[in-house]
C-alpha cells in the first residue's frame, strides 16, 4: 500500500491527464442533482457531489445492452464491450455495491458481458466527509467506509487529498502517469492515525437510523413474513419500479430480440427489470407468483435482507438511500426495517 499527497488544486490536472488515456466516468451536475456518466472535460467532474441519480455500477451493466447478434444464415455472435475505464470518485456505499455485483455476475454461469466491461476498469474511490441525505442507512450498515473494492481511495485532508493506492491496477495507473506523479509527494504522516481521526470525525456527523443492530435484521425480517406491514406498504406502492431501477444492487434484467427491418438478422438486448412490475413473476403458463403489490414489496426487501444473506452471506442493500429518495409514495426501507424490529416478539 502506498499513500500519496495530492493538493486539491492539482486534481483538475490529474483528471485531464487521465482523460487523455482513458474513458472517465464520474459524477457531474444534472439540474439540481448529479448523474454518474461519461466525463468529457475535467471541469465537468465533481468530487463534491452528494449522490448520483443512477449508481456507478450501471457503467458495467448498461440498460438496453446489446448482448448478441444474429444473421439470416443462423450465425450468432456474442457481443462484448471492453474498454479501459476509470471510475473517478466513487463513494464507499457504491464501492460495496460494485463488489457485490462483481460477485453476483462472476458466480457461474459467469456473465461475460458484465465481466468484460468490468475487467480492466479502475475504481477511484472518495470517502464521504458528511452524510449525503437523511434517507441513507450506510452508517447502520457500515458501508460508509470501504476497505476493499477500489484501486485508489481519496481521503479528504483539508486543502489536499491523501491518495491510498491498494491494488496492482492502482499502481498501474500510477506508473502510467509517472510524469504526472510529480505532483505527488509521499505522505510521511502516520496514515493509520489519519484514518482513525477521519472516521472519528465521521462518527460525529453520521447517525444510525435503525433501532437495533443490522445483524439482527435477517431474523427479524423472517418473522415478519405474514405481517400486516406488507399490506400497508403494498397499499401505498404504485408498482412504478423506480426503487429497483435506481438500486446499485438490483441486477434483474429482461431479454428481448430486436429484428432488423429486413426481417432477417437482428440483435438480442437486455433491459433493466423491476420485481415491482405486475408481470415480473408471471410465467409462461400465465400464473403470477406475486400478483399482489404487498407480495412484490415483501419480495424486494426479503431478497435484499433475507435471501442474499442466506445464500451469499451478505446483505443486498448497501444503504445508499436511492430507493427511499426515488419513491414518490414515501416508502422507505428505514421505516420498514424499524417496523420489522418493533413488531418482532
Amino acid at each position: 500500500m502506498k499513500i500519496y499527497f495530492l493538493p486539491k488544486d492539482k486534481v483538475k490536472l490529474l483528471v485531464e491527464s487521465v482523460l487523455d488515456e482513458f474513458q472517465v466516468f464520474g459524477a457531474k451536475a444534472k439540474e439540481m442533482k448529479f448523474e454518474f456518466g461519461k466525463i468529457d472535460t475535467a471541469a465537468e467532474l465533481r468530487l463534491d457531489y452528494n449522490t448520483t441519480i443512477l449508481p456507478p455500477v450501471k457503467t458495467f451493466f448498461p440498460n438496453d445492452e446489446k448482448i448478441l447478434e444474429f444473421k439470416p444464415n443462423g450465425q450468432t455472435t456474442s457481443v462484448h464491450e471492453n474498454s479501459k475505464k476509470v471510475l473517478f470518485g466513487v463513494h464507499p456505499c457504491d464501492i460495496h455495491a460494485i463488489e457485490m455485483m462483481d460477485n453476483i455476475f462472476s458466480t457461474p454461469p459467469e456473465d461475460k458481458h458484465y465481466l468484460e466491461r468490468r475487467k480492466d476498469s479502475i475504481i477511484i474511490g472518495i470517502n464521504c466527509n458528511t452524510p449525503c441525505s437523511d434517507k441513507i442507512l450506510c452508517y447502520d450498515k457500515g458501508t460508509y467506509k470501504a476497505d476493499s473494492g477500489f484501486d485508489l481511495m481519496f481521503w479528504d485532508n483539508g486543502e489536499s487529498y491523501l491518495v491510498e493506492v491498494v491494488t496492482s491496477l492502482g499502481n498501474f495507473l500510477a506508473s502510467k502517469f509517472s510524469y504526472f506523479f510529480n505532483f505527488f509527494t509521499e505522505y510521511s504522516g502516520d496514515f493509520h492515525e489519519f484514518k482513525s481521526e477521519y472516521h472519528k470525525r465521521q462518527d460525529f456527523v453520521f447517525e444510525k437510523k435503525l433501532t437495533r443492530k443490522i445483524s439482527e435484521l435477517p431474523e427479524a425480517m423472517r418473522q415478519s413474513y405474514e405481517s400486516e406491514l406488507w399490506h400497508e406498504v403494498g397499499a401505498k406502492c404504485l408498482s412504478c419500479g423506480s426503487c429497483n431501477i435506481v438500486c446499485p444492487t438490483c441486477y434483474c434484467f429482461d431479454v428481448k430480440d430486436v429484428v432488423d427491418i429486413d426481417l432477417a438478422g437482428g440483435h438480442r438486448c437486455r433491459n433493466w427489470d423491476s420485481c415491482q412490475n405486475l408481470d415480473f413473476a408471471c410465467v409462461g403458463s400465465g400464473e403470477n407468483f406475486r400478483e399482489k403489490s404487498s407480495q412484490r414489496n415483501r419480495h424486494r426487501v426479503f431478497k435484499k435482507e433475507v435471501y442474499l444473506p442466506q445464500n451469499k452471506g451478505y446483505s443486498g442493500c448497501v444503504g445508499c438511500g436511492r430507493c427511499n429518495t426515488a419513491c414518490i409514495a414515501g416508502i422507505s426501507l428505514i421505516d420498514i426495517y424499524n417496523n420489522v424490529f418493533s413488531e418482532e416478539v
Binding site: 444534472k30 439540474e31 439540481m32 442533482k33 448523474e35 456518466g37 441519480i53 443512477l54 440498460n63 404504485l238 408498482s239 412504478c240 419500479g241 423506480s242 431501477i245 435506481v246 433491459n271 433493466w272 427489470d273 423491476s274 412490475n277 405486475l278 408481470d279 426515488a326 414518490i328
Partner: peptide, 20 residues
C-alpha cells in the same frame, strides 16, 4: 408493456419531476 413510465424515466437518469 407492463412497466410504468417511471421505470423508463429512471432508466433515462432523469431528475424526478416531483423533486422539482
Amino acid at each position: 408493456i407492463h412497466y410504468s413510465i417511471c421505470t423508463e424515466c429512471k432508466t433515462a437518469g432523469n431528475v424526478c419531476l416531483f423533486d422539482k
